[in-house]
C-alpha cells in the first residue's frame, strides 16, 4: 500500500516539476534559436535589415508582410548599446525584447522627441554616463536580447525610399 502511495506521489512530483520546467524553458529555448537564426553569422550589436516577409520567410512565426523589420542582436555583457533610428511614415517603432521574450521597452515615431528614436540600452546594475539629452535610457533585464524596428510599408512602391532611410539607422556599443 505504502509503495503504491509513494509511486503515485513520486510520479506527481516528477510530472509537476517537468511540467513547470518545460513551460518555463520553452520561451528561452525558442528565443535563443530565433536569435541565432536571424543573426546567422552577423555581428552582435549591429542592425541587420530584413527583406519584406513572404511565404518563403520561415524563421519567425506569423510575420507581418506589411512591415519592414530591422533587427539588432544585443549583447550587453561588455557594456551599453545605443540605437539611433530615423523615422518613416506612417509608423516606426523600436521594441526591445529580453532573452525570455518579454517586450520591456517600446517607442514609436509619434512619441519621438526629434527626427529619430534614440535609445541607450544599459546592462543591469550599470550606471549610464554622459547620455546625450533627449535620449531614452533603458535598463535591460537580460544581457542577451534583441532590438526590433518595425516600419509600416504603405505599398510596394513606397518600399525603396523607405529602405534607403532605414539603412541609416545604427545599433552600436555606447561609450558613455
Amino acid at each position: 500500500m505504502k509503495r503504491i502511495l509513494t509511486f503515485i506521489v513520486g510520479v506527481a512530483i516528477v510530472a509537476g516539476a517537468v511540467h513547470v520546467a518545460t513551460v518555463q524553458a520553452l520561451p528561452r529555448v525558442i528565443m535563443a534559436k530565433v536569435m541565432s537564426a536571424i543573426a546567422g553569422d552577423a555581428e552582435v550589436n549591429k542592425f541587420v535589415e530584413m527583406p519584406l516577409a513572404t511565404a518563403a520567410a520561415r524563421r519567425v512565426v506569423r510575420p507581418s508582410p506589411d512591415l519592414a523589420y530591422s533587427v539588432c542582436i544585443l549583447d550587453l555583457s561588455k557594456g551599453a548599446v545605443r540605437v539611433q533610428v530615423p523615422l518613416t511614415g506612417p509608423y516606426t517603432s523600436v521594441a526591445l525584447y529580453s532573452s525570455t521574450t518579454d517586450n520591456y521597452f517600446v517607442r514609436n515615431d509619434r512619441e519621438a522627441k526629434g527626427k529619430e528614436l534614440d535609445v541607450v540600452i544599459v546592462p543591469k546594475g550599470a550606471a549610464p554616463a554622459n547620455v546625450p539629452e533627449g535620449t531614452d535610457v533603458v535598463t535591460a533585464p537580460t544581457a542577451k536580447g534583441l532590438v526590433l524596428v518595425r516600419r509600416v510599408v504603405e505599398s510596394a512602391e513606397a518600399f525603396p525610399a523607405l529602405d534607403e532611410v532605414r539603412k541609416k539607422g545604427t545599433c552600436a556599443p555606447f561609450q558613455g
Binding site: 513547470v20 513551460v23 518555463q24 520553452l26 520561451p27 525558442i30 528565443m31 530565433v34 519567425v60 512565426v61 506569423r62 517603432s93 521594441a95 525584447y97 525570455t100 521574450t101 518579454d102 517586450n103 520591456y104 517600446v106 533585464p141 526590433l148
Partner: peptide, 22 residues
C-alpha cells in the same frame, strides 16, 4: 509580449506569436 504575462501565455506567444508588442 508583456512582462506581466503568466508562464503559459509567455510560452504560447513564443510558440504562436513570438516578438509580439504590448
Amino acid at each position: 509580449g508583456s512582462a506581466n504575462a503568466d508562464m503559459y501565455t509567455r510560452a504560447r506567444v513564443a510558440l504562436y506569436g513570438l516578438l509580439a508588442l504590448d
